[in-house]
């Protein structure tokens, strides 16, 4: 069991309760032991940094200070929500890069009897831990119910791959980490072009029409590619796509029914854990119909013809690095 410090973030208890439930379920099989940072506070999401700098970083680094005090030897702080992961990484990175900021933040922290030296903690996202620390082969061993026949659109969101201070992800624009994980679970992963495009963040409250346009683009593209389900790693993305989907339908007079789930929920399913314990049903756009396709051995209706299959006649495609396992 490898031990990690864990920063849940406000959304895990509320809008991303399904994420939290499914994560707790899969930690065991993955051999991960998460110790929550005691009395953590909100990371300021996308708002705080827009208003101020030193208070924003002070707010974030209070969590870093608490975590480093509690770490006794554990070096990695894991964040499940992309916004929290990004804010924590930013605080650690910029406090090191701009010593003046670091000092000011530490002066502020001192008021609360806390102190944080940048670099003591390594901040990583949950997906990064699953792929690089646990490893896909371990995940494959745990898979008892491969999600055969389920077509998923991997939607990573924009906060995880960019800005990638520590060069953890394979590409800024088209990282394949989530694709490889979902393939390991046996699902059929579509080549989703907008996997790192923005979902709108808090735009839904500030200027709803812009938010709806962004959501429509993501949902329509996933639908074009005949995905049954969209899979995300960030509570804010899930909230925007799931909660505001039917308002978007009203606004654009479309009728998309695209369930949006967390990757830990699908991992739970593949590990054979009961759907109820994985927070299924919490999503507003019900995933029951999509899940039925693999939950119960329902005879396959005419499988949706994928719009973009690779040409087998005509001119050969250039070989891509990941092509070999493609053909196995």
């Amino acid at each position: 069991m490898s031990k990690y410090l864990f920063y849940p973030g406000c959304a895990m208890q509320t809008s991303a309760r399904a994420y939290n439930e499914s994560m707790q379920e899969v930690l065991g099989p993955l051999g991960l032991n998460f110790e929550e940072v005691r009395d953590w506070n909100c990371c300021g999401a996308t708002e705080y940094l827009g208003i101020s700098t030193v208070p924003a970083y002070a707010l974030i680094s209070r969590n870093l200070a608490l975590a480093s005090r509690q770490s006794n030897g554990v070096k990695t702080l894991v964040a499940s929500c992309s916004a929290c992961y990004l804010n924590l990484s930013k605080a650690d990175h910029y406090m090191a890069e701009r010593p003046s900021l670091g000092q000011m933040v530490n002066v502020a922290l001192a008021e609360g009897g806390l102190e944080y030296t940048p670099g003591t903690l390594e901040i990583r996202h949950l997906l990064d831990i699953v792929i690089n620390e646990v490893g896909l082969d371990v995940v494959k061993e745990r898979v008892t119910h491969p999600l055969k026949g389920l077509r998923v659109a991997p939607y990573l969101g924009c906060m995880v791959p960019r800005p990638d201070y520590e060069k953890r992800w394979s590409d800024y624009e088209y990282p394949d980490e989530l694709d490889r994980l979902l393939k390991a679970l046996g699902a059929e992963v579509i080549d989703f072009p907008l996997k790192t495009h923005c979902c709108g963040g808090h735009m839904a409250q500030i200027s709803p029409t812009t938010a709806f346009e962004l959501i429509r683009r993501l949902i329509s593209s996933a639908d074009n590619y005949k995905a049954d389900v969209m899979v995300t790693v960030c509570p804010m993305c899930q909230m925007n796509l799931d909660a505001y989907q039917n308002e978007t339908n009203h606004y654009f007079h479309t009728n998309y029914k695209m369930p949006v789930l967390f990757f830990t929920q699908l991992m739970g399913l593949a590990f054979g854990i009961d759907a109820k314990k994985l927070g299924f049903g919490r999503e507003l756009v019900s995933a029951k119909e999509a899940m039925s396709r693999i939950g119960i051995e329902v005879p396959q209706e005419e499988p949706k013809t994928p719009a973009r299959r690779k040409k087998t006649t005509g001119l050969p495609m250039p070989k891509m690095p990941g092509d070999e396992e493609e053909t196995q």
Binding site: W40, N41, S52, A58, L59, V107, A110, E111
Partner: peptide, 18 residues
């Protein structure tokens, strides 16, 4: 959160430094 006063002290000091 329990340390709300601690947080308030930190943030007010931070505002002065801003």
């Amino acid at each position: 959160i329990e340390g709300i006063d601690q947080l308030k002290a930190i943030l007010s000091r931070a505002k002065e430094l801003e």
